[in-house]
Design a binder for these strands. Structure first.
Lengths: 341, 341
DNA sequence: AAACTATGGTTAAACGTTTAACGAGTTTTT
DNA sequence: AAAAACTCGTTAAACGTTTAACCATAGTTT
């Protein structure tokens, strides 16, 4: 049967307190007894009861992870990969992750994730753009909260952010260095800070290179940055502009849509059009041609977020620390030297 | 501050036992006191401490969900969608899901998911093909276990399975009804019962229609049924066989790979080749042409699995119940009438 | 009227930990 | 040599529930 701390104490001939001290290394215990206890633990295959530990410590040992439905189910595993990083780090920290998704259009009538209502988490991680109403309602529970890849309206949360400006500059510079001057930007959901930062980085790079910014080369009215909208945006862009030679898409999903439109409409990539994405999702290397992109260290982001939340949970003081994760240009085969027609 | 059952008892002027009885409806309490207690609960925003409940009940209120890394991160959100169904049902049942992934090639040296070692789940759900070594090692903990879309070697677990044979027959029949006779099967990871059942269903349909089964039209040596392998298998199939007019791929991921190869090699779908997939993943409608496929009710599968596990957890007796979820042919634009050249 | 039976409630033990308070030896300081 | 300090332990309270055992009171049988 399941063994308890009492069984271990009896087996090792010590009090249960001593066993606890050994387990948590919370009081000096002689080598000898320590070994006796450890041996007993092993022989009985003893594992402390989480419930009991939680009860007395007042903590749950759980961290909640919140994602909107569409982020959870999107074709490109972006946030799910981040989740995996979190889960991974949680293992070494001894936490469990409670993953839940909320409706993308969370409204007044929707209820909060159960783990918040029941107080069964010590802190929460929120990834991606999330309805502000949700943030407001969660804040009433004042649980330690960390945001990943989103900047909430109230700016005193710990954050894990992508260096989007730097990344967008790298992407744009890469195209500039290849000789392109008519470089389009295809974005969507421009209210997401990450995506508007990418636009900003794009503009900055052009400015620095003394290339005029042309508003007709900037398509940002897509509602959601996915393949379908990338496809539509490409259609829009190329039906109006004949001299575009390069496209920087705000993420790989849109880039894939753009690529598909180009393929279907007789444009060769990269011979006719150079294309750069952002994120470096798995699908990229399967594309024809494999996509040049900006790599975002997704696993690391999840790891950082968990470290942050554990820190604030333990220290009790929520210092609004920001972690800016660096990105990296990955050159594949969707970009090449500009060739005048 | 966080209120406890004591606060409620004091507020309602009853003993804590009475409060407990009201909450759990475990003993008759007069309407009057019941209302007083409920009012107190509401006004204090009281929620029972999970840890305390768990401690005394000996249960954790958690269910573990195990997935291999590649299933978790695959481009087509198949098992993740199933997970969502499980999570959804868990909400109404009051359970939390602990999601974890294990290495696809789990071996001797790998450790089991933490929630098993620490006994912090009441039961586990395992989705997809999983190393037998893992199953063996888990079984030592005899936790209630439910498998989704996989048939473990030892056949006394509750199972949630797809009606693969029926689905494969529908797919194949659809092609037969369109006049095709040279119908290829592209599969992979044929050791997965689901996939071998799909092959079986394909053969059955051909037999019933008195169409000879040709082994050179059956490509099943791919190791993993993903886009890349679908692409390679298509190459293999068409380089040897000139008269194939239709392909049934064992899942949508492979179908997408096949489609890509066809597109790149001058075959028009469905004019030259009709193509049917299996699963009905989101990406299907974005394809050119949109893919005809067999719809698998993923959310429902997750729901069923949670119901099963909760049942066996509660009843304590693990009846090896099998749930076979029905599938449905979805006709889109990747299939059309056979036209002789 | 005495003896049951229901109904609606209370008391207190139990679940498995952590940790404050205490104590017995032993060593160090004065 | 007495006092102080350190080391290594123990005892017992506390965490917030559930639930078996018990107890009034009122109603029902004999």
């Amino acid at each position: 049967m399941k063994s308890t701390i009492k069984d271990v104490a009896k087996e090792a001939n010590v009090s249960i307190a001593t066993v606890s001290f050994v387990i948590n290394d919370s009081k000096p215990i002689s080598e000898e007894t320590k070994n006796r206890v450890l041996k007993a633990i092993k022989s009985l295959n003893y594992h402390p009861s989480k419930s009991a530990v939680n009860l007395v410590s007042g903590k749950t040992g759980n961290i909640g992870f919140i994602l909107t439905d569409d982020h959870f189910l999107r074709t490109e595993p972006f946030y799910t990969t981040i989740f995996l990083g979190t889960e991974f780090e949680a293992r070494s920290e001894g936490y469990y992750i409670l993953l839940t998704s909320i409706k993308t259009n969370f409204d007044e009538n929707d209820i909060l994730p159960r783990f918040i209502l029941n107080k069964s988490v010590d802190g929460i991680i929120i990834a991606g753009k999330i309805p502000h109403l949700l943030i407001e309602r969660i804040s009433a529970y004042n649980l330690p909260t960390v945001f990943i890849d989103y900047i909430p309206p109230s700016n005193n949360y710990p954050l894990v952010l992508i260096d989007n400006i730097q990344g967008a500059q790298s992407a744009t510079n890469h195209l500039i260095e290849l000789g392109h001057t008519n470089i389009a930007f295809i974005g969507g959901d421009i209210e997401h800070p990450s995506l508007s930062h990418r636009l900003y980085g794009y503009k900055q790079a052009l400015e620095k290179a003394n290339i005029p910014i042309k508003n007709n080369l900037i398509i940002t009215d897509a509602k959601y940055p996915d393949r379908q909208h990338g496809f539509n945006s490409a259609k829009k862009l190329f039906s109006k502009n004949k001299n575009v030679s390069a496209v920087f898409a705000c993420n790989d999903a849109m880039a894939i849509g753009v690529l598909q439109w180009l393929n279907e409409n007789g444009f060769k990539v990269p011979q006719d059009i150079s294309l750069v994405g952002f994120d470096d999702v798995d699908a990229d290397i399967m594309l024809r041609p494999p996509l040049t992109t900006i790599r975002v260290p997704k696993i690391e982001m999840g790891v950082e977020a968990l470290k942050l939340i554990v820190n604030t949970v333990k220290s009790k003081k929520s210092l609004p620390k920001k972690v800016l994760v660096p990105v990296e240009l990955i050159i594949r085969e969707s970009t090449s030297l500009f060739k005048p027609k």
